[in-house]
Design a protein around this nucleic acid. Structure first.
Length: 92
DNA sequence: CGTATGACGTGCA
DNA sequence: GTGCACGCCATAC
């Protein structure tokens, strides 16, 4: 594979449609490494890119997890896109 | 339900 | 070359 695991993760996250969220584990699975959910969190939190809606990636519990640009901003962005946040969790 | 622990894959300093 | 952080799961209390 030409692409490193992190590059695959970026590609998956970039394909997340507006108003939708995906868990770190879900991203890892789509990236071909379902057991590397830990790595996904590490990569996305440390490597923010404007082209990557990493604010649409949350924990399996629906909790926001981490965010390089500020956790409050992450929640605000999600709400702005139509994602409802209740008790620090995503309502589904 | 909240807190704690152990084990895991990957990237970075 | 080494250690750290990240999130998830199971188990325990």
């Amino acid at each position: 594979m030409n692409l490193s695991f992190k590059e695959k993760v970026y590609k998956i996250v970039k394909q997340i449609p507006r108003g939708s969220v995906l868990s770190y584990k879900g991203v890892a699975k789509k990236a071909g490494r379902p057991k590397a959910y830990r790595a996904v969190g590490n990569i996305l939190n440390k490597n923010y890119d404007k082209k990557i809606p990493c604010h649409r990636v949350v924990k399996s519990d629906g909790k926001p997890g981490g965010y390089n640009r500020g956790l409050k901003n992450k929640v605000a962005l999600l709400k702005r896109e139509g994602v409802i946040i209740r008790k620090r969790k995503v309502v589904r």
